[in-house]
């Protein structure tokens, strides 16, 4: 198997993961697609030179993060208008929080995520959304693990408040 097929087999399974990180690095959907594509091109270029990471997911996440920081730096971090699609969820209707999650507008969630500090949003994207460990996220972000934990928690808190407001709005 050549390096090209080898790379596809190893890395293409992480497309959803990279996309879910990219979405929180750049505000526009098209920009996120471009960032994912650039991440794969940069990763492939390293792969073709013999780089073989222990785990592909944190490696791709790190590349995505670095690209977002460099070439996308000039972009505005204002959220763009997004259609009011519903956030996907695996809600059980008996649980009020799950029900609130299910009916929450994706746009409200996006606004909440984009209102976080960059560091908080990145920590949440890497750990809660992409499923990296806090140690992997710390390596990707170039910060101590304690900083990631603290950013995670401070980012989770306003999201929790948003969810609580939603539960209240729905009433009993």
């Amino acid at each position: 198997m050549g390096p090209h097929e080898d790379f596809l087999n190893s890395a293409m399974g992480a497309t959803d993961l990279v996309y879910n990180i990219a979405r929180w690095m750049v505000p526009g959907a098209e920009d996120a697609r471009d960032l994912v594509q650039d991440t794969y091109l940069a990763a492939y270029s390293a792969w073709a030179k013999g780089r073989r990471p222990d785990r592909v997911e944190p490696w791709l996440a790190t590349i995505c993060l670095n690209l977002a920081r460099s070439s996308y730096r000039r972009r505005s971090h204002r959220p763009q208008e997004v259609p009011l699609e519903r956030a996907s969820s695996t809600a059980g209707p008996s649980d009020p929080e799950r029900a609130a999650l299910a009916s929450m507008e994706a746009a409200a969630l996006r606004r909440a995520m984009w209102s976080l500090d960059d560091g908080q949003r990145v920590a949440i994207a890497l750990v809660d959304i992409a499923g990296l460990s806090t140690a992997e996220a710390a390596a990707a972000m170039g910060t101590p693990r304690g900083t990631v934990l603290s950013r995670l928690h401070r980012g989770r808190r306003p999201l929790a408040v948003l969810l609580e407001d939603q539960v209240k709005d729905q009433g009993p």
Binding site: L101, M113, D128, I129, G155, R156, R157
Partner: peptide, 12 residues
């Protein structure tokens, strides 16, 4: 709660 909300924002 915050983690749950973040997880729910996952997309394909």
């Amino acid at each position: 709660k915050g983690r749950g909300l973040a997880e729910a924002s996952r997309e394909v």
